[in-house]
Amino acid sequence: MIELAGVTKSFGANRVLAGVDLSVGRGRSLVVIGGSGTGKSVLLKCILGLEAPDAGRITVDGRDAATGDREAFLACFGMLFQGGALFDSLPVWQNVSFRLLRGALKRPRAEAREIAIEKLRRVGLSPDVADKVPAELSGGMQKRVGLARAIAADPQIIFFDEPTTGLDPIMSGVINDLIREIVSEMGATALTITHDMTSVRAIADEVAMLHGGVIRWTGPVAALDASGDPYVDQFIHGRAEGPIAALR
């Protein structure tokens, strides 16, 4: 469903992506792992068109991501940002139903609010959260609101950017379980980037490791511990010694 072929991206002299080839099947959950600064977020941004790749081809359902109707293309996606990226000036329910209040998916306000409250409930938040502003919420609650926003319009594809960063282990577990449940029940295709191995094991059907600007290894999550790749081994066990330099 999502295909990347030879995608490259540089920022000045810094070549972040050096020819990424990656494929995510429909309804599958792929987790991309890799150290900080290896270009995982850039990879997601290239797919969404937030960054323009220097070379290579990205297709979604056979459609070139760089051409055609952007609004229709983006309507397929939901995204949970690392910091939540909630709009400070809007109450929670308007954040969740943002897409339903304007554009091609616009609904009446009352209906959009109902959907927002339903989605909030789905991520374990009570309806009284709906009228609060994001600044009144804890980090874990903001992540859940971000998750509710990502699924509000029932997208076919959901991206998760470091979904558990900054959360305590219990809240991380809650978010991981929610992502797994939601992706399964919606039948959505999920692409997650993280360096949290607990998340990887909870969320992934398949895992890909990004290192040195290319996909070093890819395979089912069950094969992760027996990958035979020294880079993957070092990363998943968190060893300071190995082929991946500790200082980057």
Binding site: A85, D88, F98, G103
Partner: peptide, 12 residues
């Protein structure tokens, strides 16, 4: 805080 990126992903 990536809110501008979020706007884009929300087709705005």
């Amino acid at each position: 805080t990536e809110q501008i990126d979020a706007l884009v992903t929300l087709s705005t």
